[in-house]
């Protein structure tokens, strides 16, 4: 579903990604872990067709980036630590706007279904500026799945959430994953990544230094795998 070969990204003289090889099978949930500055967000922005690779090949759902970016974007849902929502619109208006941008058919029914999935039907007519951070993040997930994407890219979705909001986001993400979508999530939260993902890739200094499946890592041992990967 996602195939990346020898991906390099440079910003001026600074090389952020140094030949990343990465692949994800359909329906797989991959957690991309790594310290600050490892290049996780840059990598995800390239997968989301928001940034052009300097060198290397990126192919998503059979479409190559950056040449077939529009086809790729139609198949992607992106959630970041920023909500990508408009404060002065209601939840329903935000979803209606994005439904029109993505050409979603039967948008009213789809919006109602998404609001029910994220548990915000009763607050659908409230302005987003009145929402708590956790509610905004749930709505951000609703926005990302509105056009029924096959692939979800999650960039630090738990940033700034308290315990309750994180638990609610867990439930929303599990519902999204249960639909068989392919998911790539970057996170600092190893416990959450361990709970949700089936595979763990460690990105350090612009390169993937280790990769392991849930089966390969004994329960509650992700932390030592992570530390070992960074030490090597």
């Amino acid at each position: 579903m996602i195939a990346v070969k020898k991906l390099v990204k440079r910003f001026g003289l600074k090389t952020v990604l140094r030949g990343v090889d990465f692949s994800v099978q359909p329906g797989e949930f991959v957690a991309l872990l790594g310290p600050n500055g490892a290049g996780k967000t840059t990598f995800l922005r390239i997968l989301a067709a928001l940034s052009r690779p300097t060198l290397g090949e990126v192919s998503i759902a059979g479409y190559k980036l950056p040449d077939e970016a529009a086809q790729v974007r139609a198949r992607l849902g992106v959630v970041s630590h920023l909500s990508l929502l408009y404060n002065d619109l209601t939840a329903e208006e935000n979803l209606r706007f994005y439904a029109r941008m993505y050409g979603v058919e039967n948008s009213s029914a789809r919006i109602a279904a998404v609001l029910a999935m994220i548990g915000l039907e009763t607050r659908r007519r409230d302005l987003v500026r009145t929402y708590s951070r956790g509610m905004q993040q749930r709505l951000a997930i609703g926005r990302a799945v509105l056009h029924d994407p096959q692939i979800m890219l999650l960039d630090e979705p738990y940033t700034g959430l308290d315990q309750d909001a994180s638990s609610m986001l867990d439930a929303a993400l599990k519902a999204v994953a249960a639909d068989g979508r392919t998911i790539v999530m970057t996170s600092h939260d190893l416990a959450r990544a361990e709970e949700l993902a089936a595979r763990f890739d460690i990105l350090s200094r612009g390169i993937i230094v280790a990769s392991a499946t849930r089966k390969q890592i004994k329960k509650n041992n992700l932390l030592s795998f992570y530390k070992q990967a960074l030490a090597d």
């Binding site: 067709a49 928001l50 404060n87």
Partner: peptide, 18 residues
């Protein structure tokens, strides 16, 4: 600025339109 501050510009750029 309204588009940039909350990442909404990325939201627009992610849409599959020219």
């Amino acid at each position: 600025s309204i588009e940039k501050d909350r990442g909404c510009l990325d939201g627009l750029l992610l849409a599959p339109v020219d």
